[in-house]
Design a protein around this nucleic acid. Structure first.
Length: 424
RNA sequence: GGAGAGGUGGCAGAGUGGUUGAAUGCGGCAGUCUCGAAAACUGUUGUAGCGGUAACGCUAUCGAGGGUUCGAAUCCCUCCUUCUCCGCCA
């Protein structure tokens, strides 16, 4: 969530930045209006509370001295009723304000390229080259079926479409990728964690996934638990309501989880095989850092994510998202895309974002900042997240890029110590 | 799932309706002492909101949310959570 004080003090600047995201800015005026009501109610209620507190003390003294305090008690009864009425109204206004704030996205950083849609995203880097095949390439579905390593039909039987079944060397290759990525990211200084994949409502709210994306998530009604769409959610919540030590920053975590997405409303688009699935595997990177370091850490995280692709020798490019396309919680965002030979297009395999203090404000993840005069100040940390990487799209690129004329798949050199075989 | 006992400041631990934001101890910070350090002594030390340039003032906060009361850490209700015992189970 944005800082209400920022909105209160610089409404025009906030609006201008939201306009860059192609957001409707009239909500800001509504927020200001609600905030104004709120401040008035707080002031009224607190003035009466002050009166009540002081008179209650007087009553206590009178009672001690065996004096009659019934006049004051009667008076305070009225005051208490008034307070109750104000507080009741305040509760409503607070809830209203909170709900409005939950739909306002993070503000884009000044360095983010301007744009009107995803068409304006900028390719900033391309690594490697496309293979030149002297035969007709097969797509990952054909390859997977012929080699009996992927079974989308049976996955559908078990759960429904979009729930892949990996078999034999396919399962082993997937496991190898996950282990490889975790090992690499551990080397990059990320602490490995294995988290719950079902999380409570408070965790989803802290990660700013609710209410905006509630419909996109699997929800277990009986226990009010949500299947995570990304490990970003549980990892971010590791430090919810905590105050970190300045010396511990940046605090970096990596974790593998299954990820679950309903993908409501996207049926019919890229539904083939792995292109869009309800369950997939991902190694996630999270970084909690000092605010002044977050944009430097963002670049490092991008290197950490792309390092995987370099070692796998997979052709990729990096896209810097424009103001109209960055994610809800992000102030700046890079996508990493891998090349699909069969689809003849780029596929998003990772997204690396600086979410500044947008999530940590709601999640209350702070740190004790040591000031020059040796005093400390509690301040929100910045949080960054990135996929390092998601396996499904990566698997598409890998299978296609490493296929042979005979329909086999060569295992990338770096993975062989993990798979124990070098060809499928 | 059943029965019982708890959740108080960074930690330990008092407090069961009235100047209690909360005794005491430990820790942290500052100072005295010291060449320096330790020890000892003295002072200080939560978070958030609102107002104020500021000093500061006010309000809230004793797991969370309601309620009773002029007044709640203290009484009542609901929920969460921890521990112990029983049952069940990967």
């Amino acid at each position: 969530m944005l800082d209400i004080k920022l909105i209160r003090d610089n409404p025009e600047s906030v609006k201008n930045k939201l306009r860059l995201r192609k957001e409707e800015v009239s909500v800001i005026d509504k927020i200001l209006d609600t905030d104004g009501q709120r401040l008035i109610l707080i002031s009224k209620s607190e003035t009466l509370k002050e009166l009540r507190n002081s008179v209650s003390d007087e009553i206590a003294v009178m009672k001690k001295n065996k004096q009659d305090a019934s006049d004051k008690i009667a008076e305070m009864k009225k005051v208490s009723d008034e307070i109750k009425a104000y507080d009741e109204e305040l509760r409503k206004v607070d809830a209203d304000l909170d709900m409005q704030l939950r739909y306002v996205p993070n503000l884009p950083d000044d360095s983010v390229p301007l744009g009107n849609s995803e068409k304006d995203n900028a390719e900033i880097l391309k690594w490697g080259e496309k293979n030149s095949f002297d035969f007709d390439v097969k797509d990952h579905i054909e390859l997977g079926k012929a080699l009996d390593i992927l079974d989308f039909e049976r996955g559908t039987k078990i759960s429904g479409s979009g729930f892949p079944l990996y078999k034999g060397k396919g399962a082993k290759l997937e496991r190898a990728l996950i282990n490889f990525m975790l090992d690499e990211q551990s080397k990059n200084g990320y602490k490995e964690v294995m988290t719950p994949v079902l999380v409570n409502r408070a965790s989803m709210e802290a990660a700013e996934k609710i209410p905006k994306f509630e419909e996109d998530m699997y929800h277990i009604e009986k226990d009010d638990l949500f299947a995570i769409p990304t490990a970003e959610v549980p990892i971010l919540n590791i430090h919810r309501d905590e105050i970190l030590k300045q010396d511990d920053l940046p605090l970096k975590y990596c974790g593998f989880t299954n990820c679950f997405r309903r993908e409501a409303g996207s049926y019919g688009k890229d539904t083939k095989g792995f292109l869009r699935v309800h369950q997939f595997n991902k190694v996630e990177l999270i970084n909690f850092c000092r605010p002044e370091d977050s944009y430097i850490e963002l670049e490092k995280m991008l290197d950490d994510a792309t390092g995987i692709l370099k070692k796998l020798n997979i052709h990729y490019r990096v896209i810097e998202l424009c103001t109209a396309d960055i994610g809800f919680s992000a102030s700046k965002c890079y996508d990493i895309e891998v090349w699909s030979y069969a689809e003849n297009k780029w596929l998003e395999a990772s997204s690396v974002s600086n979410c500044t203090d947008f999530q940590t404000r709601r999640a209350m993840v702070r740190y004790k900042k040591v000031l020059d005069n040796n005093k400390t100040k509690t301040e929100f940390v910045h949080a960054l997240n990135g996929s390092g990487l998601a396996t499904s799209r990566l698997m598409v690129a890998l299978m296609e890029a490493y296929q042979t004329k005979e329909g086999n798949i060569i295992v990338p050199e770096i993975l062989r110590s993990y798979t124990g075989f070098d060809i499928i």
